[in-house]
Computed example of a mutant assay.
Amino acid sequence: MAELFESYASDFAQLQKSIESRLAIDFSSVSNETRRSALRHADAEAEEAGELVSQMEIEVQAFPSSVRDRYTDELRALKTSLEKLQRDIRAKQQPASGLGASGLPLDEYHDNDPEMGQEDTQRQRLLKGSDILERGTQRLAESTRLALDTEDVGANILQDLRRQREQIEHSRDTQKLVTTGIIVVLVLLILLIIYSKLF
């Protein structure tokens, strides 16, 4: 469980770093398409980071009470970081002076802007869904790998226990045989002594 939580936390850290790098772009010096693309990807990554936080909440609930508090504090810190990233993204999405809601200069608006905006929104959703699906697949593969590793460890432990049991049983049988041999020898010695006394 802890391994899976740490894996989620590592993925969150990578997403956080990626989002921060996108938000660090000087949008005043790049094209509007570059600005929209960066914010679009940042928003998708923030949504995925939120899904990771939800998965970690589920994992924490299954932790034993002895370690749950430590991971709860870590999870709380990640939530705070996520909220800050979401605020920063919203702030960057606010249209600058002289720009329309889509981030294009007002003098570049045309009659077909609503249709273009709808296509752009659909493209954003497709990109976001594709990114989320890809990362979800990666997390599933990682979870499967951890489960297989755990299964292998359990199988190895069972094999070791089986070998130890066989060794113990063998030692016990050998001890019984030695004990029986000693008793037989003692009985023969006693009989020999009695015979020598009588005859």
Rank of each mutant, 00 (worst) to 15 (best):
1 M>C: 02
1 M>P: 03
3 E>P: 01
14 Q>M: 05
17 K>A: 13
18 S>R: 05
24 A>R: 09
32 N>T: 14
34 T>W: 05
36 R>E: 08
40 R>E: 13
40 R>Q: 14
41 H>D: 10
42 A>V: 08
49 A>E: 01
49 A>K: 00
51 E>P: 05
54 S>N: 03
58 I>K: 04
59 E>A: 09
62 A>M: 07
63 F>H: 02
65 S>Q: 03
66 S>Y: 09
72 T>V: 00
73 D>E: 02
74 E>H: 01
76 R>D: 04
79 K>P: 00
80 T>A: 02
82 L>V: 05
83 E>R: 13
84 K>Q: 07
84 K>P: 00
87 R>A: 06
90 R>F: 02
93 Q>K: 15
95 P>E: 12
97 S>G: 06
104 L>N: 15
109 Y>T: 10
111 D>W: 13
113 D>V: 13
116 M>R: 15
119 E>W: 13
120 D>R: 15
132 I>R: 13
140 L>F: 08
141 A>L: 12
144 T>H: 15
144 T>C: 03
146 L>H: 05
150 T>Y: 06
150 T>C: 06
152 D>W: 04
157 I>F: 13
162 R>Y: 08
164 Q>S: 12
165 R>H: 11
169 E>H: 11
174 T>I: 05
175 Q>Y: 01
179 T>D: 12
180 T>E: 08
180 T>Y: 11
182 I>E: 05
184 V>Q: 06
186 L>C: 10
186 L>M: 11
189 L>C: 14
190 I>F: 15
192 L>N: 14
192 L>H: 04
